[in-house]
Nucleic acid binder design. Structure first.
Lengths: 250, 250
DNA sequence: ACCTGAACACCGTTCAAGT
DNA sequence: ACCTGAACACCGTTCAAGT
């Protein structure tokens, strides 16, 4: 109902010029997700946005799963891997990983899709891998260890992207708390350190974390302090960078 | 249709003894998943297995999502965390992580469920966290850093569990290969090192990995050699263990 | 080749009626 | 309180008919 009021609906039969394509379907899907989220991405809603009958989409995509694969490859273009061309290996990995997690935290439903998606025909995804692999080799990585290291980092990133959407009270043990005193106390202690729900709410700066999203290349909007997911991500990412670097030298 | 042929179907109205409960629903769901996988777990199939109308389940669970949360907590009992009571920290983490990944690789559809699931009322999950947290503290971890470290490890484990179900040709760049020569060559090199699709298929032992699933406490059935997912998991896990240990001493 | 429109075979969930 | 049976409001997908 925006511009270009739809006029008369199209009759059946082959249109003079094809109205659908992988590109148009993908961008309509991305727009639909931006507007109504992943639960709003139905084949009907997608077709409506394309001003087409739902069945028309199936002339181009074999299934909704395929549409999701196209979306996934498109979303990959939003991951910033430019640091591999300019920064030393550890800083490049750091910026890439923060950006990668940021993007897929906003597209968490794609994470299970990625895991099963072959990279064939995913040009944007391959473009990223090519540059990342180049960065690893330039840093002195033996060729046969590059892919396992990238996959390990990605696994951590995907798991962390899911973790971002966790509710902040995820570790609230509720009535069972007294049965598990050690863990309950550790949760409280961590929350205090990140400035969540402690006695004073201004203790954020004292968290024992080295950087938070400081290195991130993402244009993140104002977040007052580091949250639990950021602290965990930083902890794991710095450990991975340290540990991988040490594997290199042995 | 096994034992206890169903006899006459139950009439409407409150039965003399309640036929459903969280426990019975959970174990029926687990049985249904074992029999027909997660795509076979529908509310209808679950009700059929319980010899009950689908709507009856809603007297006990508020949604299918809640049933999945119950399943998730039950599945947690299959994760072996016993090493924290007997082994040094790094070996305990290693065994726990391999077991954890093994279990959730077979329950990959639960991974996105976990991420959003509050631990409240998840007694088995809390039981595990209690013991793991105890192990970290005993190894000298400052209390406020225990939870972030556990979450970081779990994120890696969940991402890796998803990776296990990836098809082995996931990195086959197909027709686009020549456009991305560095990555394509790295993929081939890694495959050769793990004995997949290389010139000779018996080079598995030469992979530069320290242990594979050797430390795993899981009763894994015979797998001839290490596969790509195992190599990546080992790479990341050993890096995390090394890196976390180093964070401790600084 | 590629669209429309109608239909199919499911889903999860709700709710009145029954005991 | 807790079951049955019927209905509801969706899904993704298929397919004949049209040009």
């Amino acid at each position: 109902m925006t511009a270009a009021a739809q006029g008369t609906p199209r009759r059946a039969g082959r249109p003079p010029r094809g109205v659908l394509s992988r590109e148009r379907i993908t961008s309509a899907a991305v727009a639909q997700i931006a507007a109504e989220g992943y639960e709003g991405l139905t084949m009907s809603a997608l077709a409506r946005r394309l001003r087409v009958a739902p069945s028309a989409v199936y002339n181009h995509a074999s299934s909704k799963q395929e549409v999701l694969r196209w979306v996934q490859d498109h979303v990959m273009t939003m991951v910033d891997f430019s640091a591999f061309a300019t920064e030393p290996w550890d800083e490049a990995v750091r910026r890439w990983a923060w950006s990668y997690r940021e993007v897929f935290a906003r597209h968490a439903p794609l994470v299970p899709v990625i895991a099963v998606m072959p990279v064939t025909d995913a040009a944007e995804t391959l473009r990223m891998y090519e540059e990342v692999a180049r960065g690893f080799l330039a840093a002195g990585w033996p060729e046969e260890r590059v892919v396992p290291a990238i996959v390990a980092l990605e696994s951590f990133i995907y798991g962390s992207a899911l973790d971002v959407s966790a509710p902040s009270n995820i570790f609230d043990s509720g009535a069972l708390g007294p049965e598990f005193p050690v863990f309950t106390s550790a949760v409280r202690s961590a929350a205090r350190a990140t400035g969540q729900g402690g006695a004073s709410s201004d203790a954020a700066a004292s968290a024992g974390v080295e950087g938070g999203s400081s290195g991130g290349g993402a244009d993140d909007s104002a977040e007052e302090g580091s949250n639990a997911a950021d602290v965990a991500f930083s902890t794991g990412l710095e450990a991975l960078i340290t540990g991988l670097k040490r594997q290199l030298s042995t």
